[in-house]
Design a protein around this nucleic acid. Sequence first.
DNA 1: TATGACTATATCACAACGTGACATAAACAT
DNA 2: ATGTTTATGTCACGTTGTGATATAGTCATA
Lengths: 107, 107
Amino acid sequence: MEKVIKKYVPMTETAFYILLSLTEPRHGYGIIKRVEEMTEGRLTLGSGTIYGTLTKMQRDEIITIYADEKRKTIYEITDIGKKLMRVEMKRLKELHNNVLRFEGDFQ
Amino acid sequence: MEKVIKKYVPMTETAFYILLSLTEPRHGYGIIKRVEEMTEGRLTLGSGTIYGTLTKMQRDEIITIYADEKRKTIYEITDIGKKLMRVEMKRLKELHNNVLRFEGDFQ
DNA sequence: TATGACTATATCACAACGTGACATAAACAT
DNA sequence: ATGTTTATGTCACGTTGTGATATAGTCATA
């Protein structure tokens, strides 16, 4: 297990949705809009969050630059990033199982 | 929507499992053991995490003291805490739906 | 009865994270 | 021209989880 996966799991909701939006290459602003769409407006990422996180993820080789246009830096997910997502998704399934198991106790 | 719910959602995995373990009243150390059990050993909470979080949650009336024995302070979840858990569980279901929708893209 | 393992709580410094404010500027429609 | 949207970046701030450190009671066993 790569060290970087331990570092990123458990992932924050923010980081998870950023990576989930990279099913195809996108730039920062495009990610913000895509996350809004996927969460039906519930989640709007701040500019500090998105550009800070993208820089950090690029440093850790979770994502990489796909294209560098004048006013857009477009990122794509790497193979390490995909592996990270598989691990995180497994954790989210465990979480979901526990939700189903115990939700009756909180009604 | 109570202010405290906005403050606690999205919840960290740690906070979520602490509350999920309170399907019945427990003390700090008992919560640590219960969370280990629920996650099959994956998650062991540090002492700083558990006692810090319990103090904070008590201050915010998410949990309350159920019994105060010599060497054990036993907590239970409040009605506000249960409502918070219902909101958080709804969010986790949205997350899980998105996992199912897009997991194929990360294989 | 001493020894070690386990139970139980508490505090502290530290690093990491998300956030909004602020700044800058290009693109585009009215 | 004017305002809105697109687009990126930096910064200070508060919150969080964590492990180290400390303290101490309980319990089995050698």
